[in-house]
């Protein structure tokens, strides 16, 4: 029996009258990589934002390491978020801070590390994404791919239990996608637990333990990547995945 890290139990979320999530459940084990695909507006990003309580679900429960996090007091929420890293579609780097200060901010202000240790760790994390040479550059001086790698380093620095990736490559120029996917693949191989909303099928095939297909706030089908890609049971899944492979290519980036 694998080590259960996160359990999402029939969560629902509405914005106004629109129901964005309609009873989503899954279990994520330690070291597992899940890829979530689906048409836009089906609640993939909302699902991630429910998990780290940026948009807490209206109904349903979420457990992190067997402890329910959906009913916590306000004051305890930041401690949960600290354990769950997040990487954003538009990078969300703090524009007024250099690359290394972006990575060190959480270490200094949340984990209260002293300056020497915090910057030492920040450099290690930048090294891990291959950007130690760019540590003193401001976000505006970095390329999109470099910004996203700093974003990943910033999440890694907090030593999270898992990292949520919200379409990490969809705002990038095609030639910059590879460097970000390479970092993500390396993380997956190092045993990082990840949930990735992405349409990079090559990435899904090479590292995902499970692919989840979502539509209209529900999980339509889930399974091993090769199963889902070659013989999905649901016609909508087949249709969507074939469109995606046409767009992004079968093999993707390796």
């Amino acid at each position: 029996m694998a080590d259960e890290l996160l359990k999402v139990e029939s969560i629902e979320k509405s914005f106004g009258k629109q129901k964005v999530l309609d009873g989503v459940s899954f279990i994520l084990n330690k070291g597992e990589v899940k890829v979530i695909v689906g048409p836009s507006g089906t609640g993939k990003s909302t699902l991630l934002r429910c998990i780290n309580l940026l948009n807490p679900p209206d109904k349903g429960k979420i457990y992190l390491q067997n402890k329910e996090i959906t009913s916590l007091k306000h004051t305890l929420v930041p401690a949960v978020r600290q354990k769950i890293g997040m990487v954003f579609q538009h990078f969300a780097l703090f524009n007024h801070l250099t690359a290394i200060d972006n990575v060190a901010l959480g270490l200094l202000k949340v984990r209260k590390m002293n300056k020497t240790d915090a910057y030492k760790k920040a450099i290690d994390e930048l090294n891990r994404v291959g950007l130690a040479d760019h540590k003193d550059k401001y976000p505006a001086q970095l390329s999109g791919g470099q910004k996203q790698r700093v974003g990943i380093a910033r999440a890694l620095a907090m030593d999270p239990l898992l990292i949520l990736f919200d379409e990490p490559t969809s705002a990038l120029d095609p030639e910059l996608i590879g460097e970000v996917l390479a970092v993500m693949q390396a993380l997956a191989k190092d045993g990082m637990t990840m949930i990735c909303v992405t349409h990079e099928m090559g990435f899904a095939k090479s590292v995902a333990n499970e692919v989840i297909f979502m539509e209209k706030g529900k999980i339509i089908e889930q399974g091993l990547p090769e199963e889902l890609f070659s013989n999905a049971k649901n016609p909508r899944t087949r249709e969507f995945l074939s469109k995606i492979s046409q767009l992004y290519g079968e093999t993707g980036h390796k």
């Binding site: 934002r49 780290n52 940026l54 930041p78 401690a79 978020r81 600290q82 769950i84 890293g85 997040m86 954003f88 579609q89 538009h90 990078f91 969300a92 780097l93 703090f94 524009n95 901010l105 959480g106 202000k109 949340v110 974003g151 910033r154 999440a155 907090m158």
Partner: peptide, 22 residues
């Protein structure tokens, strides 16, 4: 200033006020 930056601050474990301040 993009809301993603606020979310990024919160996701690091900063409080709402400290995200605003920092």
């Amino acid at each position: 200033i993009s809301t993603e930056q606020t979310e990024a601050g919160l996701s690091l474990g900063l409080s709402r006020f400290r995200t605003f301040y920092l």
